[in-house]
Amino acid sequence: KLPPGWEKRMFANGTVYYFNHITNASQFERPSG
């Protein structure tokens, strides 16, 4: 399970990334916590 605010998303080319809808942060590494 991801930390609060984070969700797993995917680009059109299939690349997975993680987006935080609270802070609008995005990253390729899975957030810890």
Rank of each mutant, 00 (worst) to 15 (best):
G33I: 13
V16E: 15
I22H: 10
R30F: 15
H21A: 12
A25T: 15
H21M: 12
P31G: 01
N24I: 04
T15A: 09
N20D: 05
R9Q: 05
F19K: 03
G14K: 03
W6G: 00
P4H: 12
Y18Q: 00
S26R: 12
V16P: 09
A12T: 11
N24E: 10
W6N: 00
Q27E: 04
H21D: 07
W6Q: 00
G5A: 06
P3Q: 05
A25P: 00
F11P: 04
E29S: 06
A25V: 15
Y17I: 09
A12Q: 11
L2K: 06
W6D: 00
L2P: 11
A12G: 10
N20H: 05
F28S: 10
E29M: 06
W6I: 00
E7T: 08
T23S: 08
R30S: 09
A12I: 08
A25M: 14
Y17P: 01
Y17R: 02
S26D: 04
F28I: 11
E29V: 07
A12V: 09
G14L: 04
T23W: 04
E7A: 06
Y17S: 03
S32Q: 13
S26I: 15
T15N: 09
W6M: 00
E7Q: 07
A25E: 15
G33W: 15
P31H: 01
T23A: 04
N20L: 02
F11M: 15
W6L: 00
R30T: 09
N20M: 02
R30Y: 13
A12F: 06
S26W: 15
G33M: 14
F19D: 03
H21P: 10
K8W: 06
Y18I: 01
K1D: 15
N24Y: 06
H21Y: 15
E29L: 07
G33P: 13
Q27M: 08
V16K: 05
S26P: 03
A25S: 12
W6H: 00
K8G: 04
P4Y: 12
N24A: 10
G5Q: 06
N20T: 00
G33L: 14
S26E: 10
K8D: 02
N13T: 05
K8I: 14
A12Y: 07
P3F: 03
Y18G: 00
N24P: 01
L2S: 02
E29Q: 09
H21L: 15
F28V: 11
L2R: 01
K1E: 15
Q27F: 04
M10G: 05
S32W: 11
S32Y: 12
M10H: 11
F11E: 12
G5F: 08
G33S: 13
M10F: 13
K1H: 12
F19P: 05
A25L: 13
P3C: 07
N13K: 03
A25Q: 15
S32R: 09
T15F: 08
A12S: 11
H21T: 15
G14T: 02
Q27W: 05
F28W: 10
A12H: 10
Y18F: 08
S32D: 13
T23I: 05
F19H: 08
T15I: 13
Y17D: 07
N24R: 11
P3G: 07
W6S: 00
F28A: 10
R30A: 11
V16I: 14
H21K: 12
F28Y: 11
P31F: 01
N24K: 13
P4A: 11
Q27V: 08
